[in-house]
Write a protein that binds this DNA or RNA. Structure first.
Lengths: 182, 182
DNA sequence: TTGTACATGTAATTGGTTACATGATTAC
DNA sequence: GTAATCATGTAACCAATTACATGTACAA
């Protein structure tokens, strides 16, 4: 079912699924894991940075197995539900290396969907705008506190990144508030 | 075709389409426009911040018309293709107000898919890592230059936001490089 | 005469989430 | 006995993009 001739040379992977593949491969590279475990790990340790749902992980793992990037073996422990333990293959490792080198030097524009309403601040009466912006400031602050108290240093540099970005956002909102006459 | 009983109380809208609806409504609120025009406007003036494709805009406008948030009238100018000019309705205006007040005070976590590879920096030999991070730094710098020279001040505060975030990212990468022993 | 801008729209596909289905084990 | 945790997976759906289809006008 390879779609004909043209474009078989599927060069350096692009597209939105790329990062998730990289993420799963990179984690499996350190140690083999079963889907549930992987999913929990991401939720517990990487949930502040990335956001992947269980079903997504299971689906992706299935596809990646079909493509030969990972293999799985059944594992039964006691009477618990049987696990499907995934391990990265040499092809998977090669892809990982390629994806990593492709993605690392690139700048991928982050998405700030939460900024859309900022386009229309002029639609609100100044006092109400002030009030709402103040709430936003508070929401950002709360998030910073949450970050700082959640001292799980597994993902260290990303942690710093988050803090830097959050303080930039904080400053921005504060400047806006000042501009409104605090 | 309203899906039955439960949940008819569709309270303050949430979900991913929310911002795009807000965006389209907010723009139509200032003046009526046809799809192509709207789409071009977003590309030219808001393309640095948000990213909506033509087909998406056309589709959304169609749906929003069905829901009664906008109306359209045909307009023929000379022999050019006929235009479908959209205008916001009172219901649309009400929704706009609701969406705006709902979204403004919230903090929506931005997505940084480009940071996934940063999790796996330890998989690379230090000199190569240094090289790749340097390219990333350069990519960020280029983007800042592009922003600064693109002096289209329509979206003023968002512009500042972008710059603040970019310099945070820049600083982050530079700190990483320093940590590697510049 | 070739290409770009204008103008709208549909179809196919991708990517992801929610909701559903199953079932044993452990904790309260 | 009832809820939460462990464990996997599918089906339905939603959102968005790409690719396709159509056709005129104008500029190179």
């Amino acid at each position: 079912m390879e779609h004909s001739g043209m474009n078989v040379r599927n060069g350096p992977r692009t597209g939105p699924a790329r990062e998730r593949e990289l993420l799963l491969l990179g984690l499996l590279r350190k140690r083999e894991m079963h889907g549930y475990q992987l999913s929990e790990f991401m939720e517990n340790h990487l949930g502040l940075f990335f956001d992947i749902k269980k079903a997504t992980a299971y689906n992706l793992l299935g596809k990646m197995e079909k493509k030969g990037w990972v293999t799985s073996r059944k594992e039964q422990e006691g009477k618990r539900p049987p696990r499907k333990v995934f391990a990265i293959t040499p092809e998977g490792e090669a892809l990982f290396q390629e994806l990593l080198r492709g993605a690392l030097p690139e700048y991928r524009r982050p998405a700030f969907p939460g900024n859309v309403p900022m386009l229309f601040m002029d639609a609100l009466p100044p006092e109400e705008l002030h009030e709402l912006l103040d709430l936003r400031r508070e929401a950002i602050r709360e998030r910073m506190v949450a970050l700082e108290t959640h001292l799980d240093h597994i993902a260290h540099p990303l942690f710093d990144h988050q803090l830097l970005v959050l303080s930039a956002e904080q400053k921005w909102v504060e400047d806006l508030l000042k501009g409104l006459g605090e």
